[in-house]
Computed example of a mutant assay.
Amino acid sequence: VSHQVTLIAVQAGAMQMAGRDEAERGFARTIRQLCVVTLQELREMVQVLRASGGTDREIAPQPVLADLPRLVAESGLETSTTVDLPDTLAQPLQRAVYRFVQEGLTNVRKHAPDATVRVSGRIHGEHVLVDVVNGPARSERLELPGSGLGLIGLGERASLLGGSMESGPQPDDGFALHLRLPVEHVPSAPVV
């Protein structure tokens, strides 16, 4: 949901900048402000749910590697994608890769919406390696709230699968996310 609301906020921000008149820019500003409030309320709700420690989860179809092209296309970002991962990977690994790329693209839209993005995935030895790297922002950033829970959740998901996640700024003012997961895994808890 946060992913979709962020897309709406980004589009409203663009409409606010390019509006033909003050009324149109005002409507876009209102939409963007509502998105910001909604994102904040969603984050607060997630924090409450995380604190409750519930374990019951609704079973629903989860995204897999085959869903990545649609995710990238719908992001609206200038993205080059080189994902060479077999669709025979275990389902928890496929979901982890999908969620990792999803969070990476969401972060780019929030912090550098006009930056170029490179998404890559490959198997190296006994590990699945996935990178989401963006270049520098080419215009003013949108002021969208962030809780940091997205990166924390990615790290937790990677850890549950016996892997790791690293993130940080790049020398060119871009940002990079790196995921490393063992091809063979024994999850310590259900991963959704």
Results as ranks from 00 to 15, higher is better:
Asp21Trp: 15
Glu24Val: 09
Met15Pro: 09
Thr88Pro: 06
Thr81Ala: 01
Ser164Glu: 15
Ala60Asn: 07
Gly54Asn: 02
Gly135His: 00
Asp173Lys: 08
Leu105Gly: 12
Gln170Asp: 05
Asp84Cys: 13
Arg57Ala: 15
Ala137Tyr: 00
Gly174Arg: 01
Arg43Asp: 13
Val1Gln: 13
Val133Gly: 02
Gln33Lys: 10
Leu177Met: 11
Pro145Asp: 03
Ala90Gln: 13
Leu179Cys: 07
His111Asn: 06
Thr6Lys: 01
Pro169Phe: 15
Gly135Phe: 11
Glu24Gly: 08
Thr116Asn: 04
Glu41Arg: 08
Gln62Trp: 09
Pro92Met: 06
Leu85Tyr: 03
His185Phe: 11
Pro69Ile: 02
Thr88Arg: 13
Leu142Asn: 00
Gln16Tyr: 04
Met17Ile: 03
Val183Leu: 04
Gly153Thr: 12
Pro182Lys: 03
Arg157Gly: 11
Ser147Val: 07
Glu74Gln: 13
Glu140Cys: 02
His124Asn: 04
Phe100Cys: 11
Arg138Asn: 14
Pro145Arg: 07
Gln33Glu: 11
Leu68Thr: 12
Glu143Asn: 14
Gln94Phe: 03
Asp56Glu: 15
Arg109Phe: 00
Glu58Pro: 07
Arg95Phe: 14
Gln11Glu: 06
Met45His: 11
Ile31Thr: 01
His111Cys: 12
Leu161Glu: 08
Ser147Arg: 00
Met17Tyr: 09
Glu41Ile: 12
Leu85Gln: 08
Leu181Asp: 00
Ala189Lys: 10
Gly104Asn: 10
Val83Asn: 08
Leu179Glu: 05
Cys35Gln: 01
Ala28Glu: 00
Gly53Glu: 08
Gly153Ser: 09
Arg50Phe: 11
Val130Ile: 04
His185Gln: 06
Gly163Met: 01
Ala115Glu: 08
Ala51Lys: 06
Ser75Asn: 08
Arg138Cys: 00
Ala90His: 04
Val48Lys: 07
Gly148Ala: 07
Ala66Glu: 14
Asp114Cys: 10
Met17Ala: 08
Leu105Phe: 06
Arg118His: 10
Leu49Pro: 11
Gly153Pro: 11
